[in-house]
Design a protein around this nucleic acid. Structure first.
Lengths: 374, 374
DNA sequence: TCACCTTGCTGAATCGATTCAGTGGGCCAA
DNA sequence: TTGGCCCACTGAATCGATTCAGCAAGGTGA
């Protein structure tokens, strides 16, 4: 029973200004006015000037975006798709740094950025994501078995993947070498003299299974990033003669300090011999530090802790975290630029960003080694 | 020299599916197919079913958004306009909580959310903000003298303002009663027995003037939120017989711990008699705590600190901050819903959200009073 | 039985731009 | 003088949907 509305969204009865009205005003064709905006070389500078002045006089604010989109097929917006909860996204420093890189790049060229959160519980086909509203997608760290990827495959428009899933049939990929990052982190601990090392990973699948990660669990994991970091970490341990099977691996329920604290507590209680913790994210590492403190352990004297990502808080945390640094803002910038390029016809591309070990104060030689040195 | 592109963005030569092709497929009119999507009550359930099945069979993913927009004038997206730097936005807990409330609401109804950052240096008319791409705007905490507001006045579509500027000619306003929040905070300190109180505010204008805020500076301030908090804070002090002119007021350069620390350091060095600091944001309060610590002062024994906003970190900070709590996520939800309602024709509205004093551990009776009590 | 209403569907106009195949005039070379 | 070419601009088709007047068939009340 809604009141019938005029199709023209004219305010206060005033007819809206179009290309045609400007053309009429100065006696040229609609095409010429269009060209004044889109192909300046097609008309004389004088005429173009007259067109633009008339447009200004009539209060024309440029070609109607919907009409242009309808005609050209270009929507001038990109979608950022992620499967984490919104409340997580807006608290996670990794995601935020990434997001700010993306937003900076898209805003810089006047392209819209549409956030496309896929709520965890709901099946994606039921969520009102306007897939058709964008020219392409950035997929941020989505496990390879997530149902939304099927939907995305049917949607038109190129897809740039960040971190996961590392498929080959997408228009672009941006990530880091997780494996070698983990190698660096583990190598660092080994070199310090640690032999009793525990590992805490983030979720291994769409549905987390917090607690000790059995071999079966690891084998069926779908979160590639975690798997790669796991494989990488083992490498230096094995090289140092440590039995792979004896290394405790815990899965945290979420990537946040609370879940990290829980996992670390359990692990440290069950394995009191541990002298170092290798955490696959800084937020988990922060939780691990909290757990250590509650158990009366000092970091790094009683327990070394290594993180991953180098979020801003890694620097300000007490003690400052030793971690693997990755350029999170650049990751966003590069992913966005890559997508924009591909939309403009560039060839698919793959970029692996450089990472490095940043040693701060959360790691030290194990107490036993330090004691015997004294 | 770009290659001529076919106007139809058809992939692999396959003609795109439109309402018409579905209509042809099952032998009804285009209108009927449109009705199947938009006015289900206009046709029999059986026919509707047939239409939807045909659409599915042909791989039709719903009416083309650009065409619909062109016809209806509805863009199904809203813009979120802010004048802070992107890197600030994605680090500021207030903004993030707000943003997550907005995003939740818009995503829930399939409406696009376009971030519209106005870079600080650049004049807004030079930045490529696609004003015409949205149905309405949420303006987040923009000083009343910011040039982008003029541009916005010319853009079509309703505007909902959050916090600032509190004009009357907008379609909606969401904010809190800053003045009475500040009254509560100051009252709390006065009741504890503090008489030597310093105030640290955020920016008072588009361009910050860090340092002591002179009367002239305060009189020419354009950041209403800060002004209201300033006026509110003075009230209980005056009532307690404190000379208003004797109260030191410092302006922090930005709303972050670093700027808060700098301001607090300067103020405490210049005014060593101070026993309590009233900070107009939690992030500044956190910086103030750091400054106190560096000066060898203990919070709250030597110095009480009050914040404002109740960001997540206020709870986890050591000591947990006494602060004025405001519902930041709700603010986003409500602003977004208000805008969506107004776009749908609802009347303009004004919502002032409830706030409250949350007493934690960063405030205590002043040492002198505590001593004399002992 | 007849006028009138309701139901379910159709036809045609329309939203505002882009695009490409012209078109007429001016100019140059033969 | 003429043929050909370039320049600057125009006309008309087109993008894919929404909307509303209109129409035929069937139902209802008097």
């Amino acid at each position: 029973m809604a009141a019938q509305v005029s199709p023209t969204p004219s305010l206060s009865g005033m007819a809206s200004v179009t290309l045609q009205s400007i053309a009429d005003e100065i006696g040229v064709s609609r095409t010429t006015v269009s060209n004044a905006y889109n192909r300046p070389d097609q008309l004389t500078p004088e005429l173009r000037q007259r067109v633009l002045e008339a447009a200004d006089r009539l209060g024309y604010s440029g070609p109607n975006l919907a009409a242009r989109t309808l005609r050209t097929g270009r929507r001038n917006a990109v979608g950022l798709l992620f499967t984490e909860d919104l409340s997580y996204v807006f608290h996670d420093p990794d995601t935020l740094a990434f997001l700010s890189g993306v937003a900076e790049t898209t805003a810089g060229v006047g392209t819209g950025l549409m956030l496309m959160p896929v709520p965890p519980g709901l099946h994606p086909s039921e969520s009102p994501i306007p897939f058709a509203a964008v020219d392409g997608y950035i997929v941020y760290s989505v496990p390879s078995d997530h149902p939304v990827l099927d939907l995305l495959a049917r949607a038109r428009g190129p897809v740039v993947v960040v971190d996961e899933p590392d498929d080959t049939d997408v228009a672009g990929f941006v990530g880091i070498d997780d494996r070698s990052g983990a190698v660096m982190a583990a190598q660092h601990l080994v070199e310090l003299g640690h032999r009793q090392i525990g590992i805490i990973t983030g979720r291994l699948g769409v549905d987390p299974q917090p607690g000790p990660a059995s071999r079966a669990r690891r084998d069926s994991a779908t979160v590639k990033v975690a798997l790669n970091r796991l494989e990488g970490s083992m490498q230096p341990l094995i090289a140092a003669g440590i039995d792979q099977e004896s290394v405790p691996v815990w899965e945290a329920e979420r990537n946040d300090p609370d879940a990290g604290r829980t996992a670390a507590s359990e692990m440290l209680v069950a394995n009191p011999q541990i002298t170092a913790l290798l955490c696959f994210t800084d937020r988990i590492a922060i939780g691990a530090c909290q757990a250590a403190r509650r158990l009366g352990l000092t970091v790094p004297d009683d327990l070394s802790v290594v993180g991953f990502d180098d979020i801003p808080r890694a620097t300000t945390w007490d003690p400052p975290l030793t971690t693997i640094s990755q350029p999170l803002i650049d990751k966003g910038r590069i992913a966005a630029q890559m997508l924009l390029d591909v939309i403009d016809g560039a060839a698919p591309k793959r970029t692996v960003l450089p990472i490095s070990l940043t040693v701060r104060s959360s790691t030290a030689v194990p107490r036993s080694a330090a004691d015997s040195a004294n």
